[in-house]
């Protein structure tokens, strides 16, 4: 009886948790089809905001800019973070423990402080023009530590005799990296990229500080829409598209995996 009650409580708590996470998204999805421009009170069902969305070149440009920045950030931050994680795990040198701990810093420092620091660094010290270069470097600097942590976590579970076996069987260091190390690190590389892409795509605070003229990303554009636009409901429509896209991607990966498993 006690076990049954405990199970029931567990189910209810889980349901409340799911509701807490998904309720805003469901409301957003429903109200993106609301004819009211302000989206507060339900008027009638419409898809005109989706049509408007694709006929607003500023939004499309902001989306493309964000996708470009997030893609470049993902490639570089994943590569840098993976290599740094590998080095921090495999090689013993003075200050290794300090470095491993300090990698956490960009994640733990409040974004607004990091953004201010980057702005001063770019404008006063290294003189990098605000805009694309500054945004991309800033995004890489706060995203790469994520890849370091994911890589370090993965490396603790890898059997490192595999690298030695590769060398013993005649492969030099480079071939061992290509044929053994990278395939073993692939889950970490993929996980890092999957985490970094939306992190960079979503970033508002740091981008707000270091963006220049003509480099308004989607989060910055949506924020300005919220302040000045007459059609804030457009935000619901675009948000829903970016919620559905990763869900579809995850479902596709899951289905293709299930099919491969079933086939084998």
């Amino acid at each position: 009886m006690k076990i049954l009650n405990a199970r029931r409580i567990n189910t209810i708590v889980s349901m409340i948790g799911y509701l807490f996470v998904w309720a805003p998204i469901v409301v957003l999805a429903i109200f993106s089809f609301n004819a009211s421009a302000y989206g507060v009170k339900w008027e009638s069902l419409t898809i005109k905001w989706y049509v408007d969305l694709f006929h607003t070149p500023e939004i499309m440009q902001a989306v493309l800019r964000s996708l470009l920045i997030a893609s470049i950030t993902t490639i570089f931050a994943t590569a840098i973070g993976t290599l740094a994680g590998y080095g921090l795990y495999k090689y013993k040198f003075a200050g290794r423990r300090f470095l491993r701990m300090s990698v956490l810093l960009p994640i733990t420092v409040p974004y607004v402080i990091m953004a201010g620091a980057l702005l001063v660094y770019f404008t006063r010290i290294v003189h990098i023009p605000l805009g694309y270069p500054a945004i991309i470097i800033a995004h890489i600097s706060f995203s790469a530590p994520l890849a370091v942590f994911v890589t370090l976590g993965r490396m603790q579970r890898i059997n490192w005799s595999l690298e030695e076996a590769s060398v013993d069987l005649g492969a030099n260091t480079l071939t061992t990296w290509r044929k053994v190390t990278i395939p073993l690190l692939l889950p970490a590389i993929f996980a890092s990229a999957v985490l970094i892409f939306p992190w960079s795509f979503n970033d508002f605070t740091v981008t707000y500080f270091v963006a220049g003229v003509g480099t308004t990303t989607l989060p910055l554009y949506l924020f300005s829409m919220l302040e000045y636009s007459l059609k804030p409901v457009l935000i619901n429509a675009i948000s829903l598209i970016f919620i559905i896209m990763p869900i579809l991607l995850i479902m596709l990966i899951y289905l293709s995996k299930a099919r491969t498993k079933h086939g084998s």
């Binding site: 030695e164 076996a165 590769s166 492969a171 073993l184």
Partner: peptide, 27 residues
Amino acid sequence: PYRRDCNLVFQNLALFPHMTIGQNIAY
């Protein structure tokens, strides 16, 4: 080690998990 005419069978075997048996032997 990759130029030595001597091979090792590891205690934990160290078979490459991402390769098939055929690919492991052919490596």
